[in-house]
């Protein structure tokens, strides 16, 4: 039973790995911190796995947990973390390096965007991530817990901010 649960969990994580990867990269600049945050998110997801509410999408559930953990981690609030004796030295993600020119240009733009996201406060960072992920207003509202009207207002402000920030590129 437990083996099945773990396999199902790993399968779910694999399916939605990009969510965790992107959140970790947005909230942590340091490589070591990223590994800690990845594990922290995984442990929280595992602990909530049995209580997953099927009224929501898996992605909504995952975004909520990963963002809540990332914000606490970013704010260095150890008391909200999970105690675990074993911490892995390795990242839970593997990513192949790229070398071609097209990718270099993509990386340059991504770096600029990531720097821009890093400078936002914790909640705006979450909103920006969800907006760039093209989540619907309804899903953003469910993940963050603000009204759809508020999401719409904030997104129009984000668009202006992005336009201003990237106008010379």
């Amino acid at each position: 039973m437990m083996v099945n649960k773990k396999e199902h969990f790993i399968k779910t994580i694999d399916e939605y790995k990009k969510i965790i990867y992107k959140i970790v990269n947005s909230y942590c600049q340091n490589k070591e911190d990223r590994k800690d945050l990845e594990q922290e998110i995984i442990i929280h997801l595992w602990n909530s796995f049995d209580n997953y509410n099927s009224d929501y999408k898996y992605s909504t559930w995952m975004y909520r947990i990963a963002l809540n953990v990332a914000i606490s981690f970013y704010r260095k609030e150890k008391k909200w973390s999970m105690k675990n004796d074993f911490y892995n030295e390795e990242s839970i993600f593997k990513i192949e390096e790229d070398t071609n020119e097209e990718q270099t240009e993509l990386n340059y733009h991504l770096k600029l965007l990531q720097e821009f996201i890093h400078n936002l406060n914790e909640l705006n960072k979450a909103l920006m991530l969800l907006y760039l992920e093209e989540k619907s207003y309804e899903e953003i509202s469910e993940i963050l817990g603000i009204t759809k009207t508020n999401v719409a207002t904030k997104i129009s402000r984000i668009k202006l901010k992005l336009k201003k920030e990237f106008q010379n590129i």
Partner: peptide, 19 residues
């Protein structure tokens, strides 16, 4: 991007406790 399943499996998930 791929999942490092060996690394994920090595985390002792059941032995965690909320701080």
């Amino acid at each position: 991007l791929s999942l490092n399943v060996a690394s994920l499996k090595s985390i002792n998930l059941d032995k965690s406790e909320r701080s």
